[in-house]
Amino acid sequence: MNRYKEWTAVILLILSVCFLLRLAFVRPELPVFGTQLWVVYFGSGEDSFLVPELRFGTPSVAARLQALERGPRLPNLNPVLPPGTKVISYQIEGNLIVVNFSRQLTENHPGGSASELITVYGLVNTLTEDPSLDYVQILVEGSRVTTIAGHVDVSQPLRRDESLIEAR
């Protein structure tokens, strides 16, 4: 056991020195200590799951909504809101957030239950990351709609759905 440890140690030492020689000096410490880490959910590349994308900074509701509006930064993820969709306004009542979208949410939606589920729960799961929010009500230009693309009932406040988040 001792010999094994020594042997490992020697290899480690050699490798370490080799690596350190390749580097002129160590990079400055990462600046993200203390900053908050939060996630936005976007669609996965192929199998229509939600995948969290990491963000740094203060996770205000506005920041979360803006991140959804803008779409993913990683090239292998898909946006959850249809092109051109804007958040007009939002209102928070206790643990419910009501988000009022522009008409592009329904008009530009590509359809299909797979992509509709990603739209609905990308939004709901991202907003309910906020520990004070449990329910999301979707409005389109002020009015409650039955569905966005014909399948998922969004007329009532929706709860988070973990089952759509890709297992890792």
């Binding site: 898909n78 590509p110 299909g112 797979a114 990603i118």
Partner: peptide
């Protein structure tokens, strides 16, 4: 009876809800 859609062109197959 429905037909599905997803972003990109990779997703395919049958699912029943």
């Amino acid at each position: 009876i429905h037909a599905n859609s997803y972003e990109g062109t990779a997703a395919k197959g049958v699912e029943t809800l």
